[in-house]
Nucleic acid binder design. Structure first.
Lengths: 324, 324
DNA sequence: GCTGGATACGTCCATATCGTTCAATGGTAG
DNA sequence: CTACCATTGAACGATATGGACGTATCCAGC
């Protein structure tokens, strides 16, 4: 094992172009990564390194590189706390992962599986801060993870508790997220719920959160809402968009007709109905021109953008002259 | 008494590492920020920290950094008032009461009725920071307000949407609260859910939050959990306390027997079962010496304190391995 | 191999915080 | 009223922090 010293220039050793030193299985971190991970500025990190508090190696070009063990030693001995553990790859939910690299969806699954509330929050928040759209995180990470956890259900009785706990954690993180989103509601009102008889609360919460991120003033009415109550509310607030999530379906034929009518009612007051959820296909409403279908949250968000765009142009012509 | 505020999504500028404009991970506050926020000099803050009244972490260079939860705990327990809420990521908030004097329960009712999410959050947090115990806020303000809103249900169809919306807001505020509580789990593990067949999610969330504030590592398994799944989980984590909320009751006789057995099973592994909720009296379990009944959250919290006290004395004779 | 955007380099500076001392304030007991 | 004690906020020089600057390096994508 090669000795590592700070400050003085190390012998030329090309480590810059790879993040891994394959010969030693060492992982290097840049000052930015480590700085973000422990929540200090790069300036401070540089100063500490130059003072010898943190041992760094240097690339040929003079850039600092920090080995994982040294980063950990420094964190432990200096007493600084880790703000974003996942930046260091430290979220080891070692259930059946043998040191392999996990993508964000896998990490989320393991964190949910382990009931690690803080971990889940951190993972989702970081993804969002790194610029990933919420609908993408939801569609590609959160929902698959929950589906996967739902499958445990069949294997073992403990799968039920894991699923319930994961559900609770998701709802908490969603609430946290919804609250932290900038409250700029430029696109009008959106309102939604789960279909009557459907008591799944997560899908509709996901939609509400994603739509808030899109700039809608999204009001979530939660699971299992009678359609006439929803209609009554729509008469009052005139939403641009109404979503209904359908993850559990009892009386398909009744709901189908109700949704048809509801969509037309909304149309009359310049609103649109978007339905989604795992059971939506059973309703066979894909031919109906007034009922929009979002197969996932991304689609729903796309539809919402279309609606707003259309509304803009529609209002512009309406200002001048309204023609049939 | 002029501290009325809610939490703002726009955080204090320049705290710690933040380089994104709307920092979602507001981790640390500097003495200046906190001092300005509560209107005291940095000198006093330093002295309090040195005397151990306020827990601070230190940067490598020795500067004090305060985490938000600790700041809120200190504000709450020391009774200082917040002068500039926005510095802590809270925003000035005053509900429009048209001059009339309303108590906090009434204000909460109106805010919930109006769907004013920010208002509800502000009111609850305000009460909490003024030193009122969470269980008291829940028992005397939140639950009565929700009950009152539930009554609207009968008058008018719009009562249904109001109730759903209020429920969603409550769940959000609870999540927010749970997140802001200091995470010191000194009293052991607590675990709970709503009874099988009971799909009300709020009571069990209230309990989880109150128990966290009490120092339990409370895990909420949400509504409608089969008892055998709960039992399976209890075998694994050996909770000190298990709560079951019963707001809706179908097969009373079956559940009664199950709960009896469950309570005895828990007893055998040093745990206690506490049940509560509006339908609890129908179970007629008040004679059973092993099934504890908490008529409200305050009672449940009291019971939990008793349990811990008893456990302490019990362990003193046992002298098992001590923790660091 | 070349190239462009992202990132880090070294350096400088404004501001914040450090530990400490000291004067002002306010309550209390004699 | 005075003497005493506790608390507070302001001041001090020294140090720490984070951001800004122009230049240099890194590395992924072609």
């Amino acid at each position: 094992m090669r000795t590592k010293f700070a400050i003085s220039q190390l012998p030329a050793r090309q480590i810059g172009n790879v993040q891994y030193d394959h010969s030693m299985e060492n992982k290097y971190y840049t000052p930015k990564t480590l700085g973000d991970a422990i929540g200090v500025s790069q300036s401070s990190l540089k100063r500490w390194a130059d003072r010898g508090l943190l041992n760094v190696e240097r690339t040929v070009g003079g850039h600092r590189r920090i080995v994982l063990e040294e980063a950990l030693r420094f964190i432990r001995e200096s007493g600084v706390s880790i703000v974003k553990p996942d930046l260091l790859g430290l979220e080891d939910y070692d259930i059946d992962t043998e040191g392999q690299d996990l993508d964000s969806a896998d990490k989320l699954y393991y964190a949910l599986h382990a009931g690690d509330e803080t971990g889940v929050r951190g993972l989702v928040l970081n993804q969002y801060l790194e610029g990933r759209p919420l609908h993408e995180i939801f569609d590609q990470d959160l929902q698959p993870a929950m589906t996967r956890i739902g499958l445990l259900w069949h294997d073992d009785i403990s799968g039920i508790t894991i699923e319930h706990r994961a559900h609770d954690i998701c709802m908490q993180v969603l609430a946290d997220l919804r609250f932290r989103l900038p409250k700029v509601f430029t696109k009008g009102m959106a309102i939604g719920c789960s279909a009557p008889g459907d008591s799944y609360s997560m899908p509709t919460a996901l939609v509400a959160t994603a739509l808030r991120a899109e700039g809608f003033e999204a009001v979530n009415l939660g699971p299992n809402l009678p359609l006439d109550a929803l209609m009554d509310e729509c008469k009052k607030v005139k939403p641009v968009l109404v979503w209904i999530s359908i993850s559990h379906l009892k009386k398909a034929h009744i709901l189908r007709n109700d949704l048809r009518d509801f969509a037309r009612f909304l149309r009359d007051q310049q609103g649109a109905l978007v339905i989604g959820g795992s059971q939506v296909s059973r309703l066979r409403l894909d031919k109906d021109p007034f009922v929009l279908i979002g197969k996932n949250i991304h689609e729903l968000v796309s539809i919402s953008r279309g609606l707003v765009a259309e509304r803009m142009t529609g209002e512009k012509t309406q200002e001048t002259k309204s023609e049939e």
